[in-house]
């Protein structure tokens, strides 16, 4: 059987619910909004970003533990959670590009939120390069943790602050020219009822995949120390 399985079943149930209810619920069609049925992407595209932020937050937390030396495998945890987070980020960029192609006319329109997300992911890619370049384990743990903390604090300006300061195609930008998509005030209870389980489900699935990688790494580590 699986290890600590209740939350894994919860991930399964929530994602099954999202994939079924995401197609079945009635979506709002406010006049003048050209989204039509594509608003259902809200149940699939947006949870990618939410899960990414949560997973990168967990990675950030383990980097702090690594610097405090509170946890023997904290550096592994931070690395693996950052990897899964970036995977979700890439999925978010890809799904966003598909949606944007049909909604805004091109897959990449240089929207501030698109650019910000790309910058954030590139900063995390630099984390993997930096961590991979150091062979000494103690030094690697410290340098990677410091960089990861820095990278996490770059998420705030690139995803949350800068896109809000200029006009954006995404909802929530200043003035929201171009496409007034559904923003906070337009979110109906039905949208919320599918959206939040989706966020929890994807985050738990991300956690599950991360723990698998961590368990492999710990096994490898134990094998190495036994030799």
């Amino acid at each position: 059987m699986m290890k600590q399985s209740w939350w894994k079943w919860l991930a399964f149930i929530f994602l099954m619910y999202t994939c079924i209810a995401g197609f079945l619920v009635k979506v709002p069609e406010p006049p003048g909004v050209p989204l039509k049925e594509s608003i259902r992407n809200f149940f699939f595209h947006v949870p990618m970003w939410f899960s990414m932020m949560i997973l990168l937050g967990v990675s950030f937390w383990y980097s702090i533990l690594a610097l405090n030396k509170k946890h023997p495998y904290a550096d592994f945890y931070a690395h693996v959670y950052a990897q899964t987070g970036v995977l979700f980020g890439c999925a978010g960029i890809a799904t966003g590009a598909i949606w944007a192609n049909y909604q805004w006319g091109s897959p990449w329109s240089g929207d501030p939120k698109q650019n910000g997300a790309a910058i954030a992911i590139l900063i995390y890619l630099a984390y993997f390069v930096l961590r991979g370049a150091i062979t000494d384990i103690d030094k690697r743990g410290k340098v990677a943790a410091v960089y990861n903390i820095f990278a996490f604090f770059m998420l705030f300006p690139t995803l949350w602050i800068l896109p809000r300061l200029t006009t954006s195609l995404h909802p929530g930008g200043q003035g929201s020219e171009g496409n007034p998509a559904l923003n906070g005030a337009d979110m109906t209870p039905t949208l919320r009822m599918v959206f939040y389980p989706a966020v929890i489900g994807w985050t738990l699935l991300g956690t599950w995949i991360s723990t698998l990688f961590i368990r492999v790494k710990i096994l490898q580590e134990k094998k190495l120390s036994n030799v």
């Binding site: 290890k3 991930a11 099954m16 994939c19 079924i20 995949i209 698998l212």
Partner: peptide, 20 residues
Amino acid sequence: VVTIVLALFGYVYSIDKKLN
């Protein structure tokens, strides 16, 4: 979509069991 997510979960589940 349901088939894909089912397959994904089945795969992750089998990896989990092997690791155990």
